[in-house]
């Protein structure tokens, strides 16, 4: 799939993500309560739930932007524990797209995309730029490569952010509400890119309230509330016959207007 040599620790036959009995506290506040979740390679999982339910916290634990307090997280068989080496390794294979884009404002679009491959994967500039242009074409903005992020629209910025994550050629992509900061007319262009990625077989964990997107591409939808996973089902079932009252209430609020 890629020209980049993978480190040998990753076991691509193991489940992409395996979370068992995960707990996380902010001080005394119990933010995640024994979360269990397995995502296999190529699977697309959509996570939804009310504000403050711990969705961001959970996916940020996967690449250790948040440290968890107990439980185990394995990515392709590599366990995320106290070891900084395993954290570095996993961040190389797990890309992330943020609600606020978080592009580096002092670098051009192209530099944003080539920085990490050159520094982390240690590939040459020429190769990194070629890869970057390929992915910028994929997100349909190759002509903006020399601009600075501040000169792009929100939708364009988010597509650059996706391209930037792809340039590391990750096995897994995490999305934390990628369309929530966008004006309605820009949401579609970002979702289109995400659908394309899903169809190409990328493993994706996506926190979003875009239920249309969930219906279209998700293999599974997960509903969280108060730090717990309440319900976990394929989209038809999740939207058709939700089991829990809380899910039903949430769906009526999200779909109601």
């Amino acid at each position: 799939m890629s020209a980049i040599a993978r480190t040998n620790v990753m076991d691509l036959t193991a489940p992409a993500i395996e979370i068992t009995d995960l707990n996380k506290y902010y001080g005394t506040f119990h933010a995640l309560r024994s979360i269990n979740l397995t995502v296999s390679k190529g699977e697309k999982v959509v996570v939804c739930g009310p504000s403050g339910s711990g969705k961001s916290t959970m996916i940020r634990c996967i690449n250790q932007l948040e440290e968890h307090d107990s439980g185990a997280i394995r990515v392709f068989g590599t366990q995320l524990d106290d070891n900084l080496g395993s954290i570095d390794e996993i961040r190389r294979e797990v890309g992330m797209v943020f609600q606020q884009f978080n592009l580096f404002p002092h670098m051009t679009v192209l530099e944003n995309c080539t920085l990490a491959p050159m520094l982390v994967r240690k590939i040459s500039r020429a190769e990194a730029e070629a890869t970057a242009m390929r992915y910028l074409e994929k997100v349909r903005i190759p002509d903006q490569a020399q601009k600075f992020p501040g000169q792009l629209s929100g939708g364009q910025q988010q597509r650059v952010a996706i391209a930037r994550a792809l340039c590391m050629q990750p096995e897994i992509l995490l999305f934390d509400e990628p369309t929530s900061a966008l004006d309605p007319e820009m949401i579609a262009e970002v979702l289109d890119v995400m659908v394309t990625l899903a169809q190409e077989g990328m493993t994706m964990v996506c926190v979003t309230h875009e239920m249309g997107f969930a219906r279209k591409v998700a293999d599974r939808v997960i509903f969280m509330d108060k730090g717990e996973i309440i319900e976990e089902a394929p989209p038809e079932e999740f939207f058709g016959q939700p089991k829990s009252d809380r899910t039903r209430l949430f769906l009526s609020q999200v779909l109601g207007h």
Binding site: E67, D81, D82, N83, L84, G85
Partner: peptide
């Protein structure tokens, strides 16, 4: 780069 694993542990470093 791969020394004894406790050298790379967060707690040890802290």
């Amino acid at each position: 780069m791969t020394g004894p694993s406790f050298l790379r542990s967060r707690a040890f470093r802290r």
